[in-house]
Amino acid sequence: MSFKFHRILPFALILAACGAEPRYLIDPPVQSGTSRLQVSTLEVMDVSLPAYAEASEILLEGEDGALTQVDNALWADDSRRAVTLAIAEQIGRASSAAVAPEPWPLEEDAQAQVHVSVSRMVARANGTLSLDGQFAVSSYDRVVRERIQRFAITVPMASADPAGIAQATGAAIAELSSQITASLSR
């Protein structure tokens, strides 16, 4: 029995050490107002992120341009899931439409879909966070005009620590959500 204990102990110690890193939420500020959209239902497709932005580690760009992990800091949720949910929630709160992430939960299909492709989501050495890419609006029944729109969002970071990076990430996602909402407004 002691043989099994000695084999299990190193794994238990490794697992215990893994749980000690603080985790940070991508939590955009609450949007206010109610925009009337051209659609009553909108599906937000899974956001496409670069591989480094999908990682669980919180990264910061150095002076040399290298992205390095901020010590002992992880995202609290899968980045793709967190960004997708945040966009859906922000548009839903700021508009008259019923908005949900994929898979669409209702029996009748959504009138339109938003596809977001992020090409850059970086906490920069200069104290800003950059969120660049494009979003596409598609509508099977042509309820709205289909289009592709580019975005380049830069927000200041209050600090280069994990909390500052998380706060700036949330603010950038809120700005992106506002741009998508504005593009669908009547």
Results as ranks from 00 to 15, higher is better:
residue 8 I to N: 12
residue 80 R to H: 00
residue 88 A to R: 01
residue 87 I to S: 00
residue 6 H to F: 13
residue 176 L to K: 05
residue 166 A to Q: 04
residue 40 S to Y: 04
residue 47 V to T: 05
residue 91 I to N: 09
residue 49 L to Y: 03
residue 87 I to V: 12
residue 117 S to F: 02
residue 124 R to L: 00
residue 159 S to Y: 04
residue 73 A to H: 02
residue 116 V to N: 07
residue 114 V to K: 09
residue 53 A to Y: 00
residue 102 E to F: 13
residue 53 A to I: 06
residue 86 A to G: 01
residue 102 E to P: 05
residue 126 N to F: 07
residue 140 Y to G: 13
residue 126 N to V: 05
residue 172 A to Q: 03
residue 173 I to P: 05
residue 19 G to C: 12
residue 97 A to V: 01
residue 186 R to S: 12
residue 65 G to H: 05
residue 180 I to M: 08
residue 46 D to N: 15
residue 28 P to W: 10
residue 62 G to C: 02
residue 107 E to M: 14
residue 91 I to C: 05
residue 110 A to S: 11
residue 135 F to T: 02
residue 112 A to T: 07
residue 65 G to V: 03
residue 132 D to S: 01
residue 6 H to R: 15
residue 70 V to D: 04
residue 73 A to G: 09
residue 26 I to V: 11
residue 177 S to F: 06
residue 30 V to I: 13
residue 70 V to I: 14
residue 170 G to F: 06
residue 17 A to C: 11
residue 174 A to G: 12
residue 91 I to R: 06
residue 175 E to T: 02
residue 160 A to M: 08
residue 156 P to I: 05
residue 84 T to Y: 06
residue 162 P to E: 10
residue 138 S to Y: 01
residue 6 H to C: 12
residue 31 Q to W: 05
residue 90 Q to F: 03
residue 82 A to F: 02
residue 130 S to Y: 00
residue 97 A to Q: 06
residue 117 S to A: 03
residue 2 S to Q: 10
residue 153 I to C: 00
residue 16 A to C: 15
residue 85 L to N: 15
residue 18 C to L: 13
residue 184 L to F: 10
residue 143 V to L: 10
residue 4 K to T: 11
residue 96 S to Y: 03
residue 178 S to R: 15
residue 21 E to L: 15
residue 48 S to I: 11
residue 40 S to K: 14
residue 173 I to E: 05
residue 3 F to R: 15
residue 147 R to Q: 14
residue 68 T to E: 02
residue 17 A to W: 10
residue 14 I to C: 15
residue 118 V to D: 01
residue 122 V to I: 12
residue 127 G to K: 10
residue 151 F to V: 00
residue 54 E to G: 00
residue 115 H to V: 11
residue 69 Q to T: 10
residue 118 V to N: 01
residue 61 E to A: 02
residue 162 P to K: 07
residue 115 H to D: 13
residue 68 T to N: 00
residue 61 E to F: 06
residue 68 T to H: 01
residue 140 Y to E: 14
residue 168 A to G: 08
residue 49 L to K: 03
residue 12 A to K: 09
residue 11 F to D: 03
residue 185 S to T: 15
residue 18 C to D: 05
residue 99 V to I: 08
residue 81 R to P: 01
residue 146 E to Y: 08
residue 85 L to R: 14
residue 165 I to V: 06
residue 162 P to I: 07
residue 36 R to H: 15
residue 71 D to W: 10
residue 65 G to A: 05
residue 50 P to S: 01
residue 98 A to V: 14
residue 10 P to K: 12
residue 75 W to R: 09
residue 57 E to G: 01
residue 135 F to A: 00
residue 161 D to G: 05
residue 165 I to K: 02
residue 113 Q to T: 10
residue 78 D to Q: 09
residue 86 A to D: 04
residue 165 I to R: 04
residue 114 V to M: 12
residue 112 A to N: 06
residue 137 V to G: 03
residue 112 A to P: 10
residue 109 D to F: 08
residue 15 L to D: 13
residue 10 P to L: 07
residue 36 R to G: 11
residue 139 S to C: 12
residue 86 A to F: 04
residue 135 F to I: 01
residue 104 W to A: 01
